[in-house]
């Protein structure tokens, strides 16, 4: 059993955390209530702002008549594919760059330019080259996530502890041994945090892609809603997107927790 002081200390922490949660919940609840009240009293124009009730109605309607889950699944599917491809290509390219200093030096300015280029500018080209279908959405999202992945992981490889590197060399380790026994394990947490950025990058790319070409997905719902001036649909799309983003983020967080146990 803990001492009285310690119990009080624990109580204090618990109280503090509870207050934070309570405030967080109050803000969102107040916001929703205020939104609804302003709408009910016609102080705001629901044609432009929509309202919580309308949004719920729209989502239920989507659920009953249209394929709500189809839209959600399409967006998630595209995100996961481009996330997986981006991560794999990113790690492979970063490995090649680490392996061969010459290639790394040659490619450096191209990477820098590609990284600072707003990838959405390439949208029209991608549509023409890849076609106005799901493929070009995945390519779009891939482009957005892969460059930053390459740069981050390559940077991690290069900032490995020089003394550990020297140790490996003093054992006459080959490049392959250095890669598998030192580089990969010591970069584990760096790679995981790159994945965290990557999953949201992929989602951004997918939504952008869906804005440009698609006939399905949450991005399409939002775009379609705005074109027919159905703000209820737009807002519903955004709310669903918020939920998807949050779930994906916490999923990666959970995987990270499970994997970093040593």
């Amino acid at each position: 059993m803990y001492s009285l002081e310690h119990q009080q200390y624990l109580k204090k922490i618990k109280r503090h955390n509870f207050l934070v949660r309570l405030t967080q919940l109050s803000i969102i609840t107040l916001f929703i209530i205020l939104w609804q009240v302003l709408a009910d009293y016609r102080l705001i124009n629901t044609f432009i702002t929509s309202s919580p009730k309308h949004i719920i109605k729209t989502i239920i309607n989507l659920h009953q008549t249209h394929n709500l889950y189809n839209h959600i699944l399409i967006t998630i599917y595209e995100t996961i594919i481009s996330f997986a491809l981006g991560t794999m290509i990113g790690i492979v390219v970063a490995t090649i760059l680490w392996w061969n200093r010459f290639i790394a030096k040659v490619i450096d300015p191209y990477l820098t330019i590609l990284n600072s280029l707003p990838k959405v500018a390439l949208g029209p080209i991608i549509i023409i080259w890849v076609g106005a279908a799901m493929d070009s959405i995945i390519v779009m999202a891939l482009l957005i996530s892969v460059i930053i992945t390459i740069i981050d992981i390559y940077h991690g490889f290069n900032s490995v502890n020089p003394i550990k590197l020297k140790l490996m060399q003093s054992f006459k380790a080959t490049k392959r041994q250095i890669y598998f026994k030192l580089l990969l394990p010591s970069n584990f947490s760096n790679i995981i945090s790159t994945l965290k950025i990557n999953i949201s990058m992929s989602l951004i790319g997918v939504i952008m892609g869906e804005f440009l070409v698609s006939k399905q997905g949450i991005g399409y719902l939002i775009m379609y809603g705005s074109q027919v001036f159905n703000l209820d649909l737009v807002m519903s799309g955004i709310i669903i997107l918020c939920i998807i983003a949050a779930i994906m983020y916490y999923l990666v967080l959970y995987v990270e927790k499970r994997l970093t146990k040593y």
Partner: peptide, 10 residues
Amino acid sequence: MLQQDSLFEW
């Protein structure tokens, strides 16, 4: 043997 023990923490 180097300046730091540089043990691999994993």
